[in-house]
Amino acid sequence: MLRAYLDYLIDLARQQFKCTFTSIQLLAPIRQKKKFEELFTQLLPDYHVNCELDEGMAVLFNRINNMINNNQYERDRWYHALIIDCGGGTTDLTSGLFRIDNNRVSYMIALETRYENGDTNFGGNNLTYRILQMLKIRIAFEMGYIQQENIPGPENRFPYEQWDSLYRQAEQYIPTFQGLRERSREQYFFVKNNYYYLFELAEMIKSNFPVKVPL
Protein backbone atom coordinates (compact mmCIF):
# COMPACT_ATOMS: atom_id res chain seq x y z
CA MET A 1 0.00 0.00 0.00
CA LEU A 2 2.79 2.42 0.89
CA ARG A 3 4.64 1.57 -2.34
CA ALA A 4 1.47 2.27 -4.37
CA TYR A 5 1.03 5.62 -2.62
CA LEU A 6 4.63 6.64 -3.32
CA ASP A 7 4.29 5.60 -6.97
CA TYR A 8 1.16 7.74 -7.18
CA LEU A 9 2.98 10.79 -5.78
CA ILE A 10 5.95 10.30 -8.09
CA ASP A 11 3.62 9.99 -11.05
CA LEU A 12 1.90 13.25 -10.09
CA ALA A 13 5.29 14.97 -9.85
CA ARG A 14 6.30 13.53 -13.24
CA GLN A 15 3.16 14.99 -14.83
CA GLN A 16 3.55 18.36 -13.14
CA PHE A 17 7.25 18.90 -13.87
CA LYS A 18 7.27 17.11 -17.25
CA CYS A 19 10.35 15.05 -16.47
CA THR A 20 11.44 11.73 -15.04
CA PHE A 21 13.21 11.24 -11.74
CA THR A 22 16.15 9.04 -10.82
CA SER A 23 16.70 10.27 -7.25
CA ILE A 24 14.20 10.74 -4.44
CA GLN A 25 14.89 12.92 -1.38
CA LEU A 26 12.75 12.07 1.66
CA LEU A 27 12.46 13.60 5.11
CA ALA A 28 13.47 11.50 8.10
CA PRO A 29 13.85 11.94 11.87
CA ILE A 30 17.38 12.97 12.80
CA ARG A 31 18.24 9.77 14.65
CA GLN A 32 16.49 7.38 12.26
CA LYS A 33 17.82 8.48 8.87
CA LYS A 34 19.55 5.17 8.16
CA LYS A 35 16.46 3.12 9.00
CA PHE A 36 14.22 5.33 6.88
CA GLU A 37 16.67 5.21 3.97
CA GLU A 38 16.80 1.41 4.12
CA LEU A 39 13.00 1.19 4.24
CA PHE A 40 12.37 3.52 1.29
CA THR A 41 15.20 1.96 -0.74
CA GLN A 42 13.35 -1.35 -0.47
CA LEU A 43 10.05 0.31 -1.39
CA LEU A 44 11.56 2.24 -4.33
CA PRO A 45 14.25 -0.04 -5.81
CA ASP A 46 14.19 1.81 -9.17
CA TYR A 47 15.35 5.09 -7.60
CA HIS A 48 18.32 6.39 -5.69
CA VAL A 49 16.84 7.21 -2.28
CA ASN A 50 18.39 9.78 0.04
CA CYS A 51 17.18 10.75 3.51
CA GLU A 52 19.75 13.40 4.42
CA LEU A 53 17.13 16.10 4.95
CA ASP A 54 15.36 15.95 8.33
CA GLU A 55 12.22 17.71 9.57
CA GLY A 56 14.13 20.48 11.34
CA MET A 57 16.12 21.37 8.23
CA ALA A 58 12.95 21.30 6.13
CA VAL A 59 11.43 23.93 8.43
CA LEU A 60 14.57 26.05 8.13
CA PHE A 61 14.59 25.82 4.31
CA ASN A 62 10.94 26.82 4.25
CA ARG A 63 11.72 29.84 6.41
CA ILE A 64 14.61 30.87 4.14
CA ASN A 65 12.33 30.51 1.11
CA ASN A 66 9.71 32.75 2.72
CA MET A 67 12.35 35.37 3.53
CA ILE A 68 13.47 35.39 -0.12
CA ASN A 69 9.92 35.51 -1.54
CA ASN A 70 8.95 38.37 0.78
CA ASN A 71 12.29 40.20 0.45
CA GLN A 72 12.76 40.06 4.23
CA TYR A 73 16.51 39.63 4.30
CA GLU A 74 19.68 41.71 4.07
CA ARG A 75 22.38 40.59 1.66
CA ASP A 76 25.46 39.01 3.26
CA ARG A 77 23.98 39.27 6.75
CA TRP A 78 24.34 36.15 8.89
CA TYR A 79 21.10 34.98 10.52
CA HIS A 80 20.76 32.59 13.44
CA ALA A 81 17.84 30.17 13.68
CA LEU A 82 16.81 27.61 16.28
CA ILE A 83 14.31 24.92 15.31
CA ILE A 84 12.69 22.94 18.14
CA ASP A 85 11.05 19.79 16.79
CA CYS A 86 8.69 18.15 19.30
CA GLY A 87 8.02 14.79 17.70
CA GLY A 88 6.04 11.75 18.75
CA GLY A 89 8.48 10.78 21.48
CA THR A 90 11.44 13.14 21.38
CA THR A 91 12.48 16.76 21.08
CA ASP A 92 15.23 17.48 18.56
CA LEU A 93 17.10 20.77 18.30
CA THR A 94 18.59 22.19 15.11
CA SER A 95 20.75 25.30 15.23
CA GLY A 96 21.28 27.05 11.91
CA LEU A 97 23.54 29.90 10.77
CA PHE A 98 22.80 31.12 7.26
CA ARG A 99 23.41 33.94 4.81
CA ILE A 100 21.54 34.84 1.61
CA ASP A 101 23.09 36.46 -1.45
CA ASN A 102 21.44 37.39 -4.76
CA ASN A 103 23.59 37.44 -7.91
CA ARG A 104 20.59 38.43 -10.07
CA VAL A 105 20.53 34.98 -11.68
CA SER A 106 19.99 32.85 -8.60
CA TYR A 107 20.12 33.00 -4.83
CA MET A 108 23.25 31.74 -3.08
CA ILE A 109 22.70 30.43 0.44
CA ALA A 110 25.54 29.69 2.84
CA LEU A 111 24.28 27.41 5.59
CA GLU A 112 25.89 25.91 8.67
CA THR A 113 23.94 23.62 11.00
CA ARG A 114 24.41 21.80 14.27
CA TYR A 115 22.17 19.12 15.72
CA GLU A 116 21.44 18.21 19.32
CA ASN A 117 19.45 15.20 20.43
CA GLY A 118 17.52 17.24 22.96
CA ASP A 119 15.32 15.66 25.60
CA THR A 120 14.16 12.17 24.66
CA ASN A 121 11.06 12.52 26.87
CA PHE A 122 9.94 16.11 26.51
CA GLY A 123 8.51 16.06 23.00
CA GLY A 124 6.20 13.09 23.36
CA ASN A 125 4.03 11.75 26.15
CA ASN A 126 5.72 13.81 28.87
CA LEU A 127 4.59 17.07 27.26
CA THR A 128 1.12 15.62 26.69
CA TYR A 129 0.98 14.55 30.34
CA ARG A 130 1.85 18.08 31.52
CA ILE A 131 -0.94 19.52 29.39
CA LEU A 132 -3.28 16.85 30.76
CA GLN A 133 -2.34 17.95 34.28
CA MET A 134 -3.18 21.57 33.48
CA LEU A 135 -6.52 20.57 31.93
CA LYS A 136 -7.47 18.49 34.94
CA ILE A 137 -6.49 21.24 37.39
CA ARG A 138 -8.42 23.81 35.36
CA ILE A 139 -11.54 21.63 35.32
CA ALA A 140 -11.25 21.12 39.08
CA PHE A 141 -10.92 24.90 39.50
CA GLU A 142 -14.00 25.56 37.37
CA MET A 143 -15.90 23.04 39.50
CA GLY A 144 -14.88 24.92 42.64
CA TYR A 145 -12.55 22.27 44.10
CA ILE A 146 -9.30 24.26 43.73
CA GLN A 147 -8.79 27.88 44.70
CA GLN A 148 -7.34 30.40 42.25
CA GLU A 149 -4.59 31.52 44.63
CA ASN A 150 -3.20 27.98 44.71
CA ILE A 151 -2.62 27.84 40.94
CA PRO A 152 0.90 28.98 39.88
CA GLY A 153 0.98 32.01 37.60
CA PRO A 154 2.92 32.44 34.34
CA GLU A 155 5.86 33.97 36.22
CA ASN A 156 6.62 30.49 37.65
CA ARG A 157 8.74 28.91 34.92
CA PHE A 158 8.99 25.34 36.23
CA PRO A 159 6.38 24.88 39.00
CA TYR A 160 6.38 21.08 38.63
CA GLU A 161 6.06 20.36 42.34
CA GLN A 162 3.11 22.72 42.66
CA TRP A 163 1.44 21.28 39.58
CA ASP A 164 1.95 17.71 40.84
CA SER A 165 0.43 18.64 44.20
CA LEU A 166 -2.59 20.28 42.57
CA TYR A 167 -2.93 17.33 40.20
CA ARG A 168 -3.13 14.91 43.14
CA GLN A 169 -5.70 17.21 44.75
CA ALA A 170 -7.78 17.22 41.56
CA GLU A 171 -7.56 13.39 41.48
CA GLN A 172 -10.01 13.27 44.39
CA TYR A 173 -12.72 14.81 42.20
CA ILE A 174 -11.67 13.80 38.67
CA PRO A 175 -10.07 10.36 39.04
CA THR A 176 -7.80 9.08 36.27
CA PHE A 177 -6.50 5.56 36.92
CA GLN A 178 -5.63 5.91 40.62
CA GLY A 179 -7.17 3.39 42.99
CA LEU A 180 -8.75 1.40 40.15
CA ARG A 181 -8.45 -1.93 41.95
CA GLU A 182 -10.79 -0.76 44.67
CA ARG A 183 -13.48 0.35 42.22
CA SER A 184 -16.34 -1.52 40.63
CA ARG A 185 -16.27 -2.46 36.94
CA GLU A 186 -18.55 0.47 36.07
CA GLN A 187 -16.42 2.92 38.06
CA TYR A 188 -13.29 1.47 36.44
CA PHE A 189 -14.49 2.39 32.95
CA PHE A 190 -15.63 5.83 34.07
CA VAL A 191 -12.14 6.52 35.43
CA LYS A 192 -10.47 5.02 32.37
CA ASN A 193 -12.60 7.18 30.08
CA ASN A 194 -11.62 10.26 32.11
CA TYR A 195 -7.97 9.59 31.43
CA TYR A 196 -8.27 8.81 27.73
CA TYR A 197 -10.53 11.78 27.11
CA LEU A 198 -8.11 14.20 28.81
CA PHE A 199 -5.10 12.59 27.12
CA GLU A 200 -6.67 12.90 23.67
CA LEU A 201 -7.64 16.51 24.39
CA ALA A 202 -4.07 17.26 25.54
CA GLU A 203 -2.71 15.71 22.33
CA MET A 204 -4.98 17.97 20.28
CA ILE A 205 -3.77 21.05 22.16
CA LYS A 206 -0.12 20.01 21.74
CA SER A 207 -0.51 19.42 18.00
CA ASN A 208 -1.98 22.92 17.59
CA PHE A 209 0.94 24.75 19.21
CA PRO A 210 2.19 27.43 16.77
CA VAL A 211 5.51 26.64 15.11
CA LYS A 212 8.00 29.53 15.15
CA VAL A 213 11.59 29.82 14.01
CA PRO A 214 13.35 32.50 16.12
CA LEU A 215 15.85 34.59 14.16
Rank of each mutant, 00 (worst) to 15 (best):
Q32F: 11
Q72T: 04
Q25V: 11
S23Q: 04
I68Q: 09
T22I: 03
V49C: 07
L97E: 14
K34V: 04
Y73E: 00
G89F: 11
A28T: 01
I24V: 10
G89T: 11
D101S: 12
E74Y: 01
A28G: 01
I64W: 03
G88S: 07
E55D: 11
G56W: 02
I83W: 06
D46L: 14
R99L: 11
L44K: 08
I100D: 01
Q32I: 08
A28H: 00
N62I: 11
T20D: 15
F21E: 08
L44M: 09
S23Y: 00
T22R: 00
T41M: 09
D101N: 12
E37G: 04
N69E: 15
V59I: 03
I24G: 02
M57L: 10
D85H: 05
Y73W: 03
Y47E: 07
N71H: 09
G56P: 08
T22L: 00
Q25R: 08
C51K: 02
L44S: 08
W78K: 13
N69G: 15
N71E: 10
P29E: 00
E74W: 02
I84R: 05
N102R: 07
F21I: 10
T91E: 14
T41K: 11
T20Q: 15
D54K: 03
K33A: 03
F40I: 07
I100P: 02
K35G: 12
K35I: 11
D85F: 06
L97N: 15
T94S: 06
G56L: 01
L60F: 03
A58T: 05
L43R: 09
Q72D: 03
M57I: 03
T94F: 07
R99N: 09
N62V: 10
M57R: 08
R31N: 07
L60R: 02
F61S: 07
Y47A: 10
C86E: 05
R31K: 11
K33L: 02
G89A: 12
H80Y: 13
A81R: 02
T91S: 14
E52D: 07
P29V: 00
W78C: 13
K35E: 14
D101M: 13
P29W: 00
D85C: 04
L60S: 05
Y73A: 00
I24T: 01
